[in-house]
Design a protein around this nucleic acid. Sequence first.
DNA 1: CAGACAATATTGTCCGACAATTTATATGAC
DNA 2: GTCATATAAATTGTCGGACAATATTGTCTG
Lengths: 227, 227
Amino acid sequence: MTSTAAASTVEQIAAHITAAVRAGQLSPGQRLTEAEFSSRLGVSRSSVREAFRRLTADGLLALAPHRGVTVRRLTRDEVDNLFAVRGALEALAVRLATPTLSAAPARLVALRRDLDAAAEANDMPRFSDLNARFHALFTETAGNPLLADTLARLSNSIYWLQFRVMVDRRDIFRTNHDHARIADAVAAGDTAGAEAAMLAHVETARRLVQSLDDNHFAHRDAQAGSA
Amino acid sequence: MTSTAAASTVEQIAAHITAAVRAGQLSPGQRLTEAEFSSRLGVSRSSVREAFRRLTADGLLALAPHRGVTVRRLTRDEVDNLFAVRGALEALAVRLATPTLSAAPARLVALRRDLDAAAEANDMPRFSDLNARFHALFTETAGNPLLADTLARLSNSIYWLQFRVMVDRRDIFRTNHDHARIADAVAAGDTAGAEAAMLAHVETARRLVQSLDDNHFAHRDAQAGSA
DNA sequence: CAGACAATATTGTCCGACAATTTATATGAC
DNA sequence: GTCATATAAATTGTCGGACAATATTGTCTG
């Protein structure tokens, strides 16, 4: 995930598709065909196929047998389910990270300052980036790679929404207020308080997502999990 | 996962390997080569390869680039990390399931009765099977497929230990005592109590696993996550 | 317009090949 | 004899093409 090492063909394809999705060049629900990427990227269909499968396991794409893959799109129910799991895991992360972070809060206070600045300046892209780092700080400090991986998979599944949420200035301030509560509790070493604040924050995010129009969501069918 | 439908080649291979691992025919740490399964099962290397990747994503196998796959084996640290995540998710599951189960506790009381009987008879295989169903009852009732899938992946990662744990009769009774506490709280609609009892139960399981000999665990290297 | 049927496109699986890399074996130096 | 090094063997990673199975699209008929 952070490696700069010589990437295999499959990794390069996966990285390319991931970047395209993040950049909005591939829209949620859009169908991706093996042949197209094969010719467009000048690689074999086998490699494209394997990249598709990997990204499906990572939660970025959805696979329908004999019908190919699409950029993943969740139903409203799936979004609720995702936030429920995410809440439990983020709470765990902050619980594990609090002792360490309250003892050495340098990065936390720096992040909080930057978040405030970005919110004040109404700089959405920067705020969104800092928001990701804010959460990453806890998952990394928690010292549980499995937890980090699991949360990352969840994030991939709803990445496409990140930039459609918080159009409103009030949403940014509310979100940032959540951050402040979390950071305060963590800095004070108040584990239970930090956990509660994190749960409230995740619930805020869920509500923001669910307030979006219906055309941001998939309908009916519960598409494939990976297990 | 529950489908009886005409399975694709890849699915058949994956099912075959899964069964072999569960039956103990493939030991943890053992290396699996594509060519061997290809010839032994009379299928192409491509399909074997894809089955390997799928099982890796499911947590049953571990993949090392250019070195192939092995039946997954965890370090003690990874076991701790896994149980931490599992605890958070099982607690969530029981929290979500408690209202439903306390209103219609038929299956729960039946399972509890069977568990008691198996424990009394010291019938390990049956107890282990019922134990799985006990946990499945909560994850299914919770009505969150993502949660169920995530927990299933975790279970795959440590499946090989299920039958090496609880050699002692006391371990069975302790485990079953945990079950009773959970069931009582759930039946009474005591969500918080059920959650706490589930966390205690997961901790019991963790300790049992960690009490095993060193040769049940992998050493040093943090092997690949999937994100 | 609906349904049946044919044409097309795409995925699923197979095969064979070869380069890249790791693992095993043999050779040589000390 | 042991250690390091070079060579050989085994295995994975990627490629290209082929074809069957399935899904999607288009056409025709009533």
